[in-house]
Design a protein around this nucleic acid. Structure first.
Lengths: 201, 201
DNA sequence: CGGCACCCACGACAGATGTCATGGTTCGCC
DNA sequence: GGCGAACCATGACATCTGTCGTGGGTGCCG
């Protein structure tokens, strides 16, 4: 029996996935939570063999949780599950010690499959994403650039960002300019889109 | 036995929802499709009692499909299902003739419940969303403003939009200015965010 | 130590953006 | 017919944005 912990912020799909996995003879869902913060306590309590984590969650995101979980329960294998097949997510998930990566576009059978493989010590990779993550490369943005672009992505103006990060307006524009150039964009908005698509934010 | 058609672009969650609904004694999933275009043919073939449609789908979106389905199979009731509880989606879904509206945050039991209620002739509404849709009101943007803002949301500059819509740059700026003012925003980017949140795009 | 990368800042400039005033057209409605 | 709403357009203006050059500070590595 493979003990599975489920983490996804959308209760409906979480319940649905639990139902689907429950149909499998060798899989047992022992816990399901809706936020990143709940994962660790639930995992300590239920000792799952595999944790299925959504990347996007309110509060602590799945990637951070994956790393923490790896430290707290080294025997528990992690499968990341996400709506968006962004190359950056993939690489970051692997860096955070995930053993598998499944996009929500994949055929349903893939999920139970991935859980079994990961449980038996194998790694489950999405070949398309793996290729993309090689071509798109690692995050080219420096920490400051990422921070500034992130703020801009939420609709903040230069003045807003400058105030929030205690910088001068000129410096903010410099960082934005660098980010725009590194993403091969021509506008701030475009840079945001590209960075988001690659999971660089 | 309630015959249900499932439409959601993410195969994994579609399969999971099918599995969950399959556990219910009185519900039978007779078709499941991944795009808006496939809905009508599948519905004609399988004659479902209830269609569960995701709002966001590649190609034809769920709201359009709902209206078409209402014309083609008037006996088939429609439940809209979506990740984002945007007030505009709710009102548009109701206008398109949907009988129910479920957000993916809702507890899993709600889904089967909603299907049963809708099948028995009732309407299923999300009280929170209904309230929001009253306060946020109907789409204040004119068709042109919506069109221009939509283009801007995809990262296009004024010049790009002007070229795409065969307008002068000044006109585009005027429409954008009007949209910004109507959304109580101060920037184009902010206007986009607000409009998206309300489902006005 | 001398590079090198990153961070911060200032100034200046072209171009884009948001606002406003003004004027034209069409269409539906009282 | 008069009126208002939506559409398109122009020109002018203040402001914001993106770019570039320059300079100074830190820390790391060969």
């Amino acid at each position: 029996m493979i003990r599975v912990l489920l983490a996804d912020d959308q209760a409906l799909v979480r319940g649905a996935m639990a139902a689907m996995l429950g149909l499998e003879r060798d899989i047992e869902v022992v816990a399901d939570v809706g936020t990143g913060e709940e994962v660790l306590p639930a995992a300590r309590r239920t000792r799952p063999d595999v944790a299925l984590l959504d990347v996007q969650m309110p509060g602590t995101d799945g990637l951070t949780v994956a790393a923490a979980l790896r430290d707290a329960l080294p025997t528990c294998r992690v499968v990341m599950c996400t709506t968006f097949g962004r190359p950056g997510y993939y690489t970051r998930a692997m860096a955070a010690g995930a053993a598998g990566f499944v996009v929500k576009d994949a055929p349903p059978e893939h999920l139970a499959d991935a859980i079994r493989r990961v449980h038996s010590g194998l790694r489950v990779v999405d070949p398309v994403l793996a290729a993309q993550s090689r071509t798109s490369g690692p995050n080219p943005l420096t920490e400051r650039e990422r921070e500034v672009l992130q703020a801009a992505s939420e609709g903040a103006t230069v003045a807003d960002i400058a105030a929030a990060l205690h910088l001068s307006g000129g410096t903010v524009r410099n960082h934005l300019s660098a980010a725009i150039s590194k993403t091969n964009a021509t506008t701030r908005a475009e840079a945001v889109r590209i960075a988001e698509r690659n999971g660089w934010l």
